[in-house]
Design a protein around this nucleic acid. Sequence first.
DNA 1: ATATTATACTACCTAATTGGTAGGAATACA
DNA 2: TGTATTCCTACCAATTAGGTAGTATAATAT
Lengths: 130, 130
Amino acid sequence: MRIGTRGRYALTIMFYLGSNYDSKRYISLKEISDNEGISFKYLEKIMVDLNKDNYLDVLRGNNGGYRLKKDPKEYSIGEILRRVEGDLSPVDCINSGCTREKKCKSYPFFEGLNKEINKFVDSKNLADYL
Amino acid sequence: MRIGTRGRYALTIMFYLGSNYDSKRYISLKEISDNEGISFKYLEKIMVDLNKDNYLDVLRGNNGGYRLKKDPKEYSIGEILRRVEGDLSPVDCINSGCTREKKCKSYPFFEGLNKEINKFVDSKNLADYL
DNA sequence: ATATTATACTACCTAATTGGTAGGAATACA
DNA sequence: TGTATTCCTACCAATTAGGTAGTATAATAT
């Protein structure tokens, strides 16, 4: 689970929306792109995954954009990262059915590490860092 | 810090050496390669990093190979992984001087995650899983 | 209506990284 | 001196990361 630009930018977007939660206005990707210095087109692409299953409120057209549906404290960092980066496990063998699992001495270690990572990211939410 | 085959194979090697610590015999990469079904040539390459600074005892030639220098409990998993995978931080911005660090809301989160990961891997050693 | 400002969708592209392979030189020992 | 081993250097193919580009669709202001 190396976290790349997708995960980092997704958090940037979510913190930006979180900071504007009270105003209830829709924020365009253009605004975020300009203020954070991130490629607009790349943000659009990340948004495809980030906004699956109507994770956010969307409005197209003039003065449109995105805004949080729920209070920032309802958005866990773990879920945000998982949406755009996929599974967060530190090695492939976890969650992809390793056949050597039984005799593998590393496996229990990786399971422990995986648990620790997920526990941490799921225990934090947007409000914790606003 | 996605852990790839380098890190996994390094642990496989170290656990193998750890299992044979009491016998004091030198273990060849050929033996590990055969028993674990891993490419011999790839193991050789991983060994270059793993054995930097005389981390292990080495003997060339017939009946040669590698063996642990110290008790398995003296080898932390964190150090092993770091040797072959480099720095274990989950994002580039940690340890590479992010300029936006001051205003970045994600940064404190990543610092926390990084700390958690390193604490875990450094608290475990080979003997814990033998 | 229609111009403007957004998101939504699809396709493409380049550089770096991952996960190897190959071959020979140096060394230790039987 | 032959054999088994590590050491060193170079190469390589497939995948992933990190984008760019263009067009369709939708909402709103005028």
